[in-house]
């Protein structure tokens, strides 16, 4: 009998305490915001919509190496390589199927040229799923994104338009194969 009374008391007080605590929350600072009138702060390294950036000279950074495509766990990136007349590689097609993308950022990690970058934009709702397929023209921006200063072809050994052999960073002049001097 005594036990039953005790149980009834503790159950009731627990419920009252919970009600009280919930009530007290109405005086706390709110975690939710009135989106979309009010936008949340997202850090620059937030993993949202993917963009293709350009190097400081304004040329496409992407060299169509296909590493993002192979790193992608959902296989939602398709890249087709082509070359300009000077031998510079660039993507003929760069397509991301955002309806499959899980925004893991592995593509950005894999990218050897800092071309592909994730941005803090997540507002990509569409009524038609087909509109979630982004082509290169949709992805390419006209800035360097999070990596100012880096230009892959200034470091790489291949000669491309405007940069011949031996003109990259830390490169010696092309070897004169006719000389026998040490």
């Amino acid at each position: 009998m005594k036990n039953a009374a005790q149980n009834a008391f503790s159950a009731t007080s627990s419920v009252l305490r919970t009600i009280g605590m919930t009530f007290m929350h109405s005086f706390r600072k709110r975690d939710t915001i009135l989106y979309p009138e009010e936008k949340p702060y997202l850090p620059p390294r937030y993993r949202g919509r993917i963009v293709l950036t350009r190097d400081p000279d304004g040329a496409e950074r992407c060299v169509a190496c296909n590493l993002c495509s192979v790193a992608c766990p959902v296989d939602c990136i398709s890249v087709v390589k082509t070359e300009d007349e000077t031998g510079r590689w660039y993507p003929e097609t760069f397509r991301i199927n955002f309806s499959r993308c899980i925004y893991c950022g592995y593509c950005e990690d894999a990218c050897p040229t800092y071309a592909i970058q994730l941005t803090p934009d997540f507002e990509m709702g569409e009524f038609d799923r087909q509109n979630m397929v982004y082509e290169k023209s949709d992805l390419l921006i006209s800035g360097v994104g999070k990596r100012p200063g880096y230009n892959f072809y200034r470091v790489a050994g291949m000669s491309v338009g405007g940069k011949d052999k031996g003109q990259a960073e830390n490169e010696a002049e092309p070897v004169d194969i006719k000389t026998l001097l040490p």
């Binding site: 296909n66 495509s69 192979v70 992608c72 959902v74 296989d75 939602c76 990136i77 398709s78 890249v79 397509r95 991301i96 199927n97 499959r100 397929v133 082509e135």
Partner: peptide, 11 residues
């Protein structure tokens, strides 16, 4: 590691 399967014909 055949890649791009969900994108190559997405256009």
């Amino acid at each position: 590691r055949f890649s791009g399967r969900t994108a190559m014909y997405a256009n």
